[in-house]
């Protein structure tokens, strides 16, 4: 189902002439504002004000108490010059994103293809793949500490193939791959998106391709793939945004260690803000992270024109 984002049109109240709005229409104006007034208040207090204040703080050296000294762009320059851990956290986040996002998408697509075959007990399989993604949180993070423990279930599984698994989260080399493995467990939502997309490809297209003599690989390549590019695009955008904001698993599972191998940007921001009370500096880093997300999203939208195929209608 396509949600057309339509911000204005189709809203005439059906009353009122072109020149002078009757009393009733003027009244309806205020009614509308009345209905959305809680949201406007919430927006100002809990979103707009903190948003602006954060921008202001990012140019100060505020420690949470005492004077807020204006320091210009010092915070923005020092994260690149005086704080090697910031650069490392950017690298860690990039490393995680580059593997976990495309990897998770491929795996989710593969599972969706499997589920799209007409198989028996399909709802049960779907739940098995989907349920982990809705439970993702502290509890599952703690669970995975044990699944990927030195004597955990995953290493037992590797043992069946004669592989000696590492002590994942105690190893500087393996901690990040461990977190990436965990992320592959939570791909159910992407899978559901792909499955919905696969099921909405019109059968006529396959029939036409078959008549033209296309085999199943060609049909997948030239019919299925173009038709579901909007779903792929959506999961890519959301995947990158979520991945940039990885926090809970990094805090719970490894707390950034060992030797900062899993310090993500958001964890570094958290530590600066709420452990060292460098609120000004933390705000500056939050803004850099936000701008990075924004730039990546805009680049994606720019590139999308080249490969995302919309079927003549307004989708999403």
């Amino acid at each position: 189902m396509a949600l057309a984002v339509d911000t204005g049109s189709g809203s005439g109240t059906g009353t009122g002439g072109p020149r002078r709005a009757p009393v009733k229409t003027r009244l309806r104006r205020w009614t509308g504002l009345l209905y959305i007034s809680p949201w406007i208040a919430g927006l100002l207090i809990f979103t707009a004000y903190p948003f602006a204040y954060s921008f202001y703080l990012s140019f100060t050296d505020w420690k949470g108490i005492g004077a807020k000294n204006f320091v210009g762009v010092d915070n923005y320059t020092s994260m690149f010059t005086d704080d090697p851990l910031f650069m490392k956290s950017v690298w860690n986040t990039a490393y995680y994103t580059i593997i976990s996002v495309p990897g998770g998408m491929i795996l989710a697509f593969f599972l969706a293809l499997l589920l799209n075959q007409r198989v028996r007990f399909m709802p049960i399989f779907r739940v098995a793949f989907y349920l982990p993604s809705v439970t993702i949180g502290v509890a599952t993070a703690v669970l995975w500490i044990h699944i990927l423990g030195p004597d955990g279930a995953f290493n037992d599984l590797l043992g069946l193939f004669g592989i000696r698994g590492p002590n994942w989260f105690a190893s500087e080399t393996w901690a990040m791959p461990g977190l990436i493995l965990m992320s592959f467990w939570g791909i159910g939502q992407n899978m559901i998106i792909y499955l919905a997309a696969l099921q909405s490809v019109p059968q006529d297209l396959y029939d036409a391709a078959e008549i033209d003599g296309a085999n199943s690989v060609q049909r997948t390549r030239h019919v299925t793939f173009p038709m579901i590019t909007p779903a792929i695009f959506l999961t890519l955008i959301l995947g990158i945004i979520n991945s940039f904001q990885t926090f809970t698993v990094a805090l719970i599972v490894t707390n950034g260690g060992p030797n900062d191998a899993t310090t993500f940007v958001l964890l570094h921001i958290y530590n600066n803000a709420f452990r060292y009370f460098q609120l000004g500096y933390a705000s500056a880093m939050a803004w850099v992270l936000f701008l990075l997300m924004l730039v990546f999203t805009l680049i994606q939208f720019g590139l999308a024109r080249r490969w995302v195929f919309y079927q003549g209608e307004v989708t999403r």
Binding site: V5, T7, I36, W39, I40, L43, F46, T47, Y49, P50, F51, Y53, S54, L57, G64, I241, Q245, F247, L266, I269, A273, F274, L279, A282, S283, A286, W287, L289, F290, M293, T297
Partner: peptide
């Protein structure tokens, strides 16, 4: 206002959490 509503959907919590904490 509706465009603002859409924009807030994309606004990450980590931007606002420090001011919210102080507030």
């Amino acid at each position: 206002l509706f465009i603002v509503l859409l924009a807030t959907m994309m606004l990450p919590i980590h931007i606002t959490i420090v001011p919210l904490f102080v507030m």
